[in-house]
């Protein structure tokens, strides 16, 4: 067991945790101030509701007569006038939206910045000031593979993997703070871990209208209608 200087604990470990907590709270309050009112666009609501309506139609078609079902199927799938065959407004695609509307782009940019920049800045600060020494010991065993990741800057090959550098302490705090922040701030706070996952899959949040429409249309066209109401008569007569 290594003996570490208590000063390291007082001036590194706890301040990093404290700073991250405060930055988390500050960021949340700033985001709240900047949020403003979110007014939804009618076209995207309409698209979402159409999809929902089609889903209801497919799920509960048993309660509709064949004529009624075909009437609605035609409403959605007709080659010329069908709701799902209309040229979907390209602005509904979130990526297109970003390209075409400069103000929206800057809006999204500032939103992203307020979330991502504090993280980057804090990470850089931690790395700059507190590199080159061991900050803490994790209480659980890890394999040698983690050594490179957790001991960035400390070049001792014989050092136990459980001793981590300041940057890894930063990441540990990053992941662990979510629960505490949620408790303190009382609502769904911005989840850093989710942002990292989201950046892997583009187009999250906005409905990808053209593809969704096509998928629903195909499913509707393939559907077999089964009028289940007649069976209820038999059931009721028992």
């Amino acid at each position: 067991m290594l003996m570490l200087d208590p000063n390291v604990r007082n001036w590194v470990m706890i301040p990093i945790t404290f700073a991250m907590l405060l930055i988390g709270v500050l960021r949340h309050l700033v985001a709240k101030l900047m949020r403003g009112s979110a007014t939804a666009k009618i076209k995207s609501i309409q698209a979402k509701q159409l999809i929902q309506r089609s889903q209801y139609l497919r799920a509960h078609s048993g309660f509709l007569s064949r004529a009624a079902f075909n009437q609605r199927k035609e409403f959605f799938c007709d080659k010329e006038k069908g709701a799902f065959c209309q040229k979907v407004d390209p602005s509904l695609n979130p990526q297109q939206q970003m390209m075409s509307d400069p103000s929206m782009l800057s809006d999204m940019l500032t939103k992203n910045l307020t979330m991502v920049v504090p993280q980057i800045v804090t990470g850089a600060w931690v790395n700059f000031f507190f590199s080159g020494f061991v900050v803490a010991k994790v209480p659980f065993p890890l394999t040698q593979k983690f050594k490179l990741m957790l001991q960035r800057g400390v070049d001792l090959s014989s050092l136990d993997v459980t001793y981590i550098s300041s940057l890894s302490w930063y990441f540990l705090n990053l992941f662990g703070m979510q629960g505490l922040l949620q408790l303190i701030l009382g609502e769904k706070t911005f989840d850093d871990t989710q942002v990292m996952q989201q950046q892997m899959s583009m187009g999250a949040g906005g409905l990808d209208a053209p593809n969704a429409f096509k998928a629903e249309k195909d499913q509707l066209e393939m559907m077999q209608h089964n009028f289940r109401v007649a069976k209820f008569v038999e059931l009721a007569a028992k």
């Binding site: 470990m13 945790t17 010991k137 209480p139 540990l172 662990g176 703070m177 979510q178 629960g179």
Partner: peptide, 12 residues
């Protein structure tokens, strides 16, 4: 993750 953080913190 919260547990691990505070476990590490207190242990250290």
């Amino acid at each position: 993750t919260t547990y691990i953080l505070f476990w590490t913190l207190a242990y250290n």
